[in-house]
Design a protein around this nucleic acid. Structure first.
Lengths: 109, 109
DNA sequence: CGCTTTCATCGTAGGATGACGATGGTCTCC
DNA sequence: GGAGACCATCGTCATCCTACGATGAAAGCG
């Protein structure tokens, strides 16, 4: 079972409804993940650099490494980003599908 | 100084930048306000009914009146909704500008 | 004036968040 | 194998969130 880097996942995500209880939960989860300036900044960073970044994120933020790692975890659990181990480093990248999903849900308000 | 119901406020809001630290803060604040299913539901309710709704919101949600009131407060503080006193009741309505602003900020990711 | 309705606020309890330093695990390189 | 780099996780503390019932304030009605 190989993990394809930054490849597609949750293929059916785009097909889910934009309204209803489930959509509310989904939107709330995604919005909550974005509900912190540091995490907004991280998402922007990862969107900017099409390529995956690593612990450079720590250098960009005025936060301790452990704190940044926690924010990354929150974003990862919300499905907005993805981390891939690359030797001693970990490369993070946007999950375009989740971001698109967020945009659709917000636009649907 | 009369409070015009559901009228325009924060007129310059649309003109603010979509990126930068201030935009990050703004997006984080708005996203955080949406970061709870009940609040997403409330926003949807208020968007649906163009007219302002009142404590009908309480009837629509499976939550105690005080809890709903707190969620309304959170949304109000984020600027997403607005409440206007109408006799013994309070009518809430969407702040279209803030909602538009949120859409722009999310779309700008 | 009292009574009711409608909301907001207070007080509170349990759980979640955000921040940090310290620790530990896993590669790479020597 | 050992050293160092990189990152996640643990432990901890302070703060915030979420939920509720109880209490209060304001407006309308008899």
């Amino acid at each position: 079972m190989k993990a394809t880097s930054c490849g597609p996942t949750n293929v059916e995500r785009d097909l889910r409804p934009v309204e209803g209880d489930e959509a509310d939960e989904e939107l709330a989860t995604l919005a909550k993940a974005l509900g912190h300036p540091a995490r907004v900044q991280i998402v922007r960073l990862l969107v900017r650099r099409t390529s995956c970044v690593c612990g450079d994120i720590v250098d960009e933020l005025p936060l301790a490494q452990s704190t940044v790692s926690q924010h990354l975890k929150v974003l990862k659990e919300a499905g907005l980003i993805k981390g891939e181990v690359d030797g001693p480093r970990v490369c993070y990248c946007i999950e375009p599908r989740a971001l698109r999903r967020l945009k659709v849900l917000v636009a649907g308000l």
